[in-house]
Design a protein around this nucleic acid. Structure first.
Lengths: 143, 143
DNA sequence: GATGAAATGCAGCTGCG
DNA sequence: CGCAGCTGCATTTCATC
C-alpha cells in the first residue's frame, strides 16, 4: 500500500468500471501495472469488491430508518448477527457505545414494510426494546 | 424497469465489473441487449454509478461513529448540507424524525481525528449540541 | 420498441525482457 | 515495471420480429 495504490483506489471508487488504461494514464503507469496492483489489493482484501449504486427510490424502496436496539442483560454480538443477517431490510448493523447496544440502518419499501422488519428485528428474546428514527431526507451519501 | 432489469441490477450490484456477456448469459440476453438496458438505467439515474468497496481498516480509517445533531429553533437542511459537505469524514447525513434534527455517519482515522471532525460538524452556529455514538464492531454491512 | 448477428476497435491478460 | 502479442469484450451498425 503506497500513495499510487491510494490514487488507483480513488479512481476505482469514483468509477469501478474504469479501464486499467484510463487509470494508468492518471497515475502514470501502464495498464498491466495497474491491473497487477488491483489484483494484489483484491487478494489483500483491501478491495472488498465492486458494486453498483442503485437509486432506492427508483426501485420503490423509499423508506429508511435508524433503529437503536436495547438488550436485556449481557449481549452476544454473534447472536444479534444471527438474528439480523437474514432480514433483507437490514442494510447495516453495529454494536455501539452508549445506552443502546446496537444501531441498525434499515431500508424498506414503505412504513408498513418497515414495521414488519422491526418485528423481525425484535425477534430475539434478549432484546428489550427498540427506538426508531425515520429518515426524512438524505443530505449526503458517500461510499 | 421490468424483471429483467432487476436481475441485471442484481448482478451488477454483486460485481460492477462483470462483462455484459456474462450478465447476458445469466439473464438469457445478448451482450448488446444488456448494454442498452444498462445505458438506459444510467440515463434514468436508476443506476447512480459504479464504485469499489474498500476496507476502511486497511487504509487506517478504523474509527466510526453515529452523530445525532440537535439544532436551535428552525433548521434549514440546505444550510446543514453546506456546512457538512466539505468535511471528508462525514460519510452520510440525513434529517430525521424524533428529538434530534439530523443523524450523521462519520468515519475517521482515530478518536483524535473524530474529535476534530466533530468540531467542524458543530461549526454552524444554529447547532445546539451533538451526541456521538461510537461503533464498536460492524456486524452487517451491505450495498 | 426491442432484439440478435456480424464487424471493428479497444481492453484485458500473459510472457518476456 | 513496460512492451508486445493474442484473446476476448465492448460498441456500433444493420436487419428482423
Amino acid at each position: 500500500m503506497d500513495v499510487v495504490d491510494e490514487r488507483i483506489l480513488h479512481h476505482l471508487v469514483r468509477n469501478a468500471r474504469a479501464t486499467f488504461a484510463d487509470i494508468g494514464a492518471e497515475v502514470n503507469l501502464s495498464a498491466p501495472a495497474v491491473k497487477r496492483r488491483v489484483d494484489r489489493m483484491i487478494a489483500d482484501e483491501t478491495i472488498a469488491g465492486f458494486t453498483t449504486i442503485v437509486d432506492p427510490e427508483s426501485l420503490g424502496w423509499g423508506t429508511e430508518a435508524y433503529v437503536q436496539v436495547y438488550c436485556k442483560g449481557t449481549v452476544s454480538p454473534q447472536a444479534l448477527f444471527n438474528t439480523w443477517e437474514s432480514i433483507p431490510e437490514v442494510v447495516s448493523a453495529s454494536t455501539v457505545t452508549g445506552q443502546a447496544d446496537a444501531i441498525l440502518r434499515v431500508r424498506a419499501r414503505n412504513v408498513r414494510d418497515l414495521e414488519r422488519a422491526l418485528e423481525r428485528i425484535r425477534g430475539d428474546d434478549t432484546i428489550d426494546h427498540t427506538e426508531s428514527i425515520i429518515v426524512l431526507s438524505r443530505l449526503i451519501e458517500r461510499g
